[in-house]
């Protein structure tokens, strides 16, 4: 697995911009990762065919956040979300089969 973020830059004293390569990570993966941090920051997403995806992170003013540390945490969460997508896609057939086993011959689903 390579570095998920192409670059990180400070936009102003509060906001952080993190760029991602959309050939590696989908925008949905970035959004899923961002949802976990909505307690401490707001997020804006921009997609450019040439430059990939940009995530603009604006921490809530009342919270003091180390921008470098936050960017590292966010990159790790993006990687985790990417791996979760891989697992979900690969195991879809097994998941459906297990659920079919679990709910067969019950009154919970109409026969």
């Amino acid at each position: 697995m390579g570095d998920p973020a192409k670059s990180i830059s400070e936009v102003d004293s509060l906001a952080v911009r993190i760029d991602f390569d959309t050939r590696v990570y989908s925008v949905e993966t970035l959004q899923r990762a961002a949802l976990k941090f909505t307690r401490i920051a707001s997020f804006d997403f921009r997609v450019d065919e040439q430059n990939g995806a940009t995530v603009l992170v604006t921490p809530f003013a009342a919270l003091k956040i180390d921008q470098g540390q936050f960017a590292a945490l966010f990159r790790n969460e993006v990687l985790d979300q990417h791996l979760r997508r891989l697992v979900a896609n690969e195991t879809e057939a097994e998941r459906n089969l297990i659920l079919a086993y679990a709910f067969s011959n019950t009154k919970l689903v109409p026969s």
Binding site: A100, Y101, A102, L108
Partner: peptide, 17 residues
């Protein structure tokens, strides 16, 4: 494994029925 997991999952949800 698939059948066993299905059985375990069903047992976990027994309270719903």
């Amino acid at each position: 494994a698939l059948g066993l997991l299905g059985l375990k999952y069903r047992t976990k949800l027994n309270h719903v029925s």
